[in-house]
């Protein structure tokens, strides 16, 4: 039995996965990295240009802007959506069975909807003329706050972020709820005997024991927010001008709209590095060691 636990044995078992990972993940990256050092119009390579694609990106104002937009959405996702999801999950756990059933259906519903449907729906909500948001503001006498939300450079990114977060808050909540249900009841019974209330039990028992789930949700939320593209395409097509583009949208725009695949691939390479760094930071910061009670 022990002979399987040698280094060779471990490698043998890891080989199928490693092979698939190499063919479908590592290998496609290699031509991408090569193209990032070329002038490429999408149909053919026009020669190597060294680091020019990268220097062009770093000198461009748009590259900074798309990063600001992307990390603004990541920030909203982590600082607003995650705490709200967790709070909802904690409350859900204490709700009646009927409320839970209705909530679970309602919470999951947006996450299974097509992004196109959600994008169009929210674009309708934000419409300057007949949109629900402006209608409500007019209805409660706050007409001075009405505006064309998606064509204003100051409001467009928060508006898209709200649509994106709305879609995934429910899903995150259900993930947290599943984690809460896995915590043994005895811990809570002991806490009640010791006089702990809802907040105390949540802070001292639930949240620490949810570390693995929190880590998972933080990773998928962060990387999901960083990779946001479809909502922008449907809601604003990156506009007004380039005001609402994310890093991925800019990559698409450079490669496919402008036929500058070299710069597009350079953005992709930078983006991959960013994602790896962010994943490492999250892994280092959250749940390094499993908590044992």
């Amino acid at each position: 039995m022990n002979k399987f636990y040698t280094k060779k044995g471990k490698l043998l078992f890891a080989l199928p996965g490693l092979l698939l990972f190499s063919v479908f993940v590592i290998y496609p990256m290699i031509p991408q990295i090569l193209i990032s050092f070329q002038s490429h119009n999408g149909a053919e390579a026009l020669g190597y240009v060294g680091w020019n694609n990268y220097t062009n990106l770093f000198q461009s104002n748009v590259f900074g802007k798309v990063h600001r937009n992307t990390y603004f959405i990541v920030g909203c996702s982590l600082l607003i959506a995650l705490p709200v999801s967790l709070l909802l999950a904690l409350l859900l756990e204490r709700a009646s069975a009927g409320v839970r059933t209705v909530f679970k259906f309602g919470a999951l519903f947006p996450s299974v909807l097509s992004v196109t449907v959600i994008g169009k729906m929210w674009a309708g909500i934000y419409d300057a003329d007949w949109g629900m948001l402006n209608s409500i503001l007019r209805g409660i006498g706050m007409e001075q706050l009405t505006r064309s939300w998606l064509t204003n450079a100051d409001t467009v990114v928060p508006c898209i972020a709200a649509a994106f977060l709305w879609q995934y808050i429910g899903l995150n909540c259900i993930l947290f709820y599943a984690g809460i249900k896995a915590i043994p009841e005895q811990y809570y019974e002991a806490a009640i005997i010791d006089g702990a209330g809802f907040w105390r039990a949540s802070i001292c028992i639930t949240i620490p024991l949810l570390q693995d789930i929190i880590k998972y949700v933080v990773i998928i939320s962060t990387l999901g927010s960083m990779g946001m593209y479809a909502h922008i395409l449907v809601m604003t097509a990156g506009g007004p001008g380039d005001a609402s583009r994310s890093v991925l949208y800019q990559m698409y725009y450079k490669a496919f709209s402008m036929s500058q695949f070299g710069e597009g691939c350079a953005i992709a390479v930078i983006f991959i590095i960013e994602c790896i760094i962010v994943s490492i930071i999250i892994n280092k910061c959250i749940a390094k060691e499993p908590i044992q009670y």
Binding site: N41, T151, N152, A153, A237, G238, G239, P240, G241, D242, Y253, S257, M258, S259, Q260
Partner: peptide, 21 residues
């Protein structure tokens, strides 16, 4: 217009329609 110029033309005409430009 080549692809790059046509794409940027679209971007700036969109900006022109957004106002304040």
């Amino acid at each position: 217009m080549d692809s790059a110029v046509a794409a940027e033309f679209a971007t700036y005409t969109n900006l022109l329609l957004a106002g304040d430009y």
